[in-house]
Structure formats: structure tokens, C-alpha cells
Nucleic acid binder design. Structure first.
Lengths: 221, 221
DNA sequence: GTCTATATAATGATAGAC
DNA sequence: GTCTATCATTATATAGAC
């Protein structure tokens, strides 16, 4: 991620190449030969430095998580107006975002780490907003954080389909950013359903659950 | 999916075995030999009936989408109280849900089909709710539908991490269902942020975007 | 540290007997 | 339709020269 890849030492070039390929193609579809070719070294050197393909993945995982610790802003970015310009100023973030997205999709250890990191970040941002009186916190704070974290990361995982429906191709396309930003703001400020909706749901929760009648009342659909 | 797998014809057993394995392990990690073993046939017969591993996947895709057309309720299910009992009554849905989740994660053709189907379903449900006066629709209806569809499917893709944080293991665990249901109802009814939040965001959108200052105002984080 | 050459294993797909 | 046997390819990982 530092300046020119050709200036990096072979070991760093290998890690960078692996990071980019894992993020773009996924772990399974990426071969050691591809990584070696992109890094400009032999396949044998990849194994010599990292032991195995799996250990190379772990190194990439650690590297990305450490990168996120230093660049805390990255995990707070959603499809809001500033995103496009922010990414334009920091082109070295793109492979990291691809790695995060692919890592979440593939599951495994890195997905848990990203999710947990997002939860922590979301919680502190929510604390900040609450301290400024900008939020009226639901009773279940932990569930709120979980819901927000899963929603934002879920949107990232579905960014391709989401952006396409909104007339763009990427999450940071201007049209996508504007339309999503306005809707999210509206929904998260005024809500989407009338209070009558909430009352029927709460009534269903206090009565016998599982009779099947409360299903259509789910506000998530 | 019909009664006992042993009663099915070999071709149907192969399709069922492939569906379950693709959903549980993903397409890449599943081998033709595994499918054949689970279906109780030889690897050669798998190819003889479906031509190739990729064509077998396409058959599974088509089968699942057709299944969804008949069982429309399935795609409207979120982690609400009725889910657990509903799935208990229909154990044959579990492999389908796993296939949907894994298919969304792996991307490709099936992910688009699932997303588009969810959008259609979400739109009609929103229409229904609006007709009953239960929803105050944002200006951008299409973006609202896209947001709701991506949110619910994103939650499905992250159900493992989400459920774990809420003290469960699956999306349909009682604790998870109850806590999520209440928070979602609260957020989607009353909203999460104060109107001041919305005003600052709209002000940022009408002025010059991309100065970086409107980033922390994103209500999604 | 870096390379070439190769061992070893597993996979998707084919061929042909029954 | 169903099987066994096998081909051809590709992958990770190793061994050893330089």
C-alpha cells in the first residue's frame, strides 16, 4: 500500500499481490502462481516466505485489521456524499475495501473480526451522537448496535446489486450516494411505519408467539 | 425436498445432494465425488445426468427459484417471532435457506436473481402496508425498496455473527428473534435520530458535497 | 533469498463395459 | 441408466541448485 509496488521488498510485494487478488477473486480462486506472477517472483518464493497459502491469508488478515486500526475512518464510511472524494484522495483504500467485502462474503475468521470491529466502531459513534442529543436510543442498546452494524456491512456485501438498482455501478456513484443518503436519513429519522404498526407487533409479542399471524407485521419487509 | 430422499429417483437425489452441499459448503469446496456419495450414486452418473458441475449448479439455481415462486412466504421471513415455528413446521426449507445465503455470499447469477426477487416481494409488501395506512412512504420509493431489500438480505448473510452477538447461534433463536424484532420495530417506527440530524444532512446535500464534513452525519453509522 | 524442477494429491470430465 | 476405470489438468508444497 505504500507508494510504488516495485519499490517494495519481495515479501511485501507478495503480501500486496495476495491482498489484491484475494479481495478481487476470493481465496479459493486465487492461486499461488497468480500471486507470484503479480508480485514478479517465483511461486516457490511465496511458500518460502509465508509457509503456505493459508498462512499467507492469515498475514493478509492481520495486515488489513492493523490497517483498519490506524485508519479508523474507513470503517465509518457508508455510501454518503463524501465517500467518493474520500476514496479518490486515498486510492490505496480500494484493495482494502475489496478485501473486506470479499472476506465478509467468504466467512471464516476474518468475517468475525471485521464484524466485531464494526460493532465496536458503531457503538462509539452511537455514544458520540447520543452525547450530542442527536439520537433517542432504543431500550436495547446492544441489539441496536448489532442491527446497525449488520445493516451497514450487509449493504456493503450487496453493494453491487444495490448500486445497480439505483442506476449506478458502484456504491460510491453520485446517484447511488445521493438517493441512498436521503432515504436512509428519512427512514432513520422519521421511521417508516406508523405507530399503529409498532403497537400490533408489541401486542403479538406479549401474546402467544408463533401462531403465524404476526409474520406480515414484521417491519423489516 | 419431497419426503424421504431414498424414495427419489437418482437424478432427483443428485440434485438434492448438490443443493444441500452447495448451500452448506459453497460451490467451489463441493466436489462431484461428495455429491455422488451423498446421493448414493457414482461420480460418473452425476456427469451423465447434468453434463458438468456448472450445469448442475444451474439446475439447482432454477429449482430454488421455482421453489421460491411457489412458497412466496419464504422470502418475506425475517427474524420475527413466527420464524422458528414456521421453520419447525417446514424442515425442508432449511437447505433452501442455506442455499440462498451461500448463493448471495458467493455472488454470480443466483445472487442477482435472489436480490431481484426480494426487491419485487418487498415492493408489493410495502404497497400493501401503504394501502392500509401503516406506512408513510419516503419520496424515493425505489430507493426505499432497495434499502429494505439490501438490509434484510444483508442481515441474512451476516446472521451468524449477528445472532452470536445477541446471545444465540441462529437467526431463529428465541432471544435473537425477540431482541431484533423489538429494536427493528422501534427504529422503523420512531426512527433513531432526532430531526436535527436530518436537517444537517439535507443542508450538506444542498451545499457543495464532498468537502468531507458531512461524513460523520451519515445516519447509518 | 531466489530460482527451477518436481513430487504428490485432488479435481472435473471421459470411455466403455454391463 | 449406471457403473468402474482412467485421463488430463491443475493445485499446493517440496527439494535442491545457485
Amino acid at each position: 500500500m505504500s507508494s510504488n509496488p516495485a519499490d517494495l521488498l519481495p515479501q511485501a510485494r507478495i503480501r500486496l499481490a495476495a491482498l489484491e487478488l484475494f479481495g478481487a477473486q476470493g481465496f479459493e480462486k486465487t492461486t499461488i502462481r497468480q500471486i507470484a506472477a503479480r508480485a514478479g517472483v517465483s511461486p516457490g518464493l511465496v511458500i518460502h516466505h509465508f509457509g503456505s497459502k493459508n498462512r499467507l491469508r492469515e498475514h493478509c488478515d492481520d495486515w488489513v485489521m492493523e490497517f483498519l486500526e490506524q485508519e479508523k475512518t474507513l470503517l465509518t464510511l457508508g455510501p454518503q456524499p463524501g465517500l467518493r472524494d474520500y476514496l479518490a484522495e486515498h486510492p490505496e483504500y480500494e484493495p482494502v475495501i475489496a478485501y473486506l467485502t470479499t472476506g465478509l462474503r467468504e466467512g471464516g475468521a476474518i468475517a468475525d473480526r471485521i464484524y466485531n470491529r464494526t460493532v465496536t466502531m458503531t457503538a462509539s459513534l452511537l455514544d458520540l451522537a447520543e452525547a450530542q442529543g442527536l439520537v433517542h436510543m432504543p431500550q436495547d442498546r446492544e441489539a441496536t448496535v448489532a442491527f446497525l452494524a449488520a445493516s451497514s456491512l450487509g449493504l456493503l456485501m450487496l453493494s453491487e446489486q444495490f448500486a445497480r438498482q439505483l442506476g449506478g455501478q458502484q456504491l460510491d456513484d453520485p446517484d447511488v450516494v445521493e438517493r441512498y443518503g436521503l432515504v436512509a436519513a428519512e427512514v432513520f429519522t422519521h421511521g417508516l411505519f406508523t405507530p399503529a404498526y409498532l403497537e400490533t407487533l408489541q401486542a403479538a409479542n406479549t401474546t402467544t408467539p408463533g401462531d403465524g399471524n404476526e409474520r406480515p407485521r414484521n417491519p423489516d419487509h
